[in-house]
Simulated scan of single mutants.
Amino acid sequence: MPFRTTAEAVRAWVEGWAASRCAAEPTPHSWGFTIDVGLAKEVARHVLTDADEATVRELAGDTTVTGVPLKTFVPPETLKAWLPPGWVLLDGHAGLMAASLSAVEAPPGLPDGYRLHSWHRAGVTRVVVRAADGAFAARGQIAVTGPTAAVDQVETDAAHQRRGLGRVVMGTLAEAAARQGARTAVLGATVQGRALYEALGWKVVAPMSAAVRSARDGGA
Rank of each mutant, 00 (worst) to 15 (best):
T55A: 14
T5D: 13
A185D: 02
R130K: 09
Y197I: 04
S118I: 01
G181L: 15
V204E: 14
A12G: 03
G32H: 01
E77Y: 01
L96T: 01
F73C: 06
P207Q: 11
R167C: 09
H29E: 10
A81E: 15
V169R: 02
E42Q: 14
P85E: 15
G181M: 14
W87C: 05
R130V: 12
A174Y: 07
P76I: 05
G38A: 07
G38C: 06
S30Y: 01
V205N: 08
A60G: 12
R163P: 04
A159Q: 08
A210H: 03
G166K: 03
V205P: 01
E58Q: 11
A132R: 12
G109V: 11
Y114V: 01
S214T: 04
R11M: 10
V65A: 13
A143S: 12
A220F: 10
A99P: 01
T64R: 10
W87P: 02
L173V: 10
I142S: 11
S209K: 01
E8Y: 00
L200A: 14
A182S: 05
A143Q: 09
G38Y: 12
E77R: 05
A23R: 03
G193K: 03
L96W: 05
G16M: 06
I35T: 02
A182E: 04
V186Y: 00
Q192G: 07
R126V: 14
A150Y: 00
A177P: 02
L116G: 04
E58L: 11
G113Q: 09
T145S: 13
A199D: 13
F73G: 01
Q192V: 10
R139N: 14
V205K: 00
G113A: 10
W82E: 14
E8R: 00
G16R: 00
E58T: 13
R162T: 03
A60N: 05
R126T: 15
P75R: 00
T172N: 03
A177Q: 03
H46D: 08
G140M: 07
V204D: 12
T184G: 01
A122N: 10
R57M: 15
I142Q: 05
D62W: 03
Y197N: 06
V168T: 03
R167F: 11
A44Y: 10
G140I: 02
G219N: 13
V186H: 00
V151G: 13
A211C: 08
H93K: 12
D52R: 00
T55C: 12
V212P: 01
W13H: 06
A131N: 10
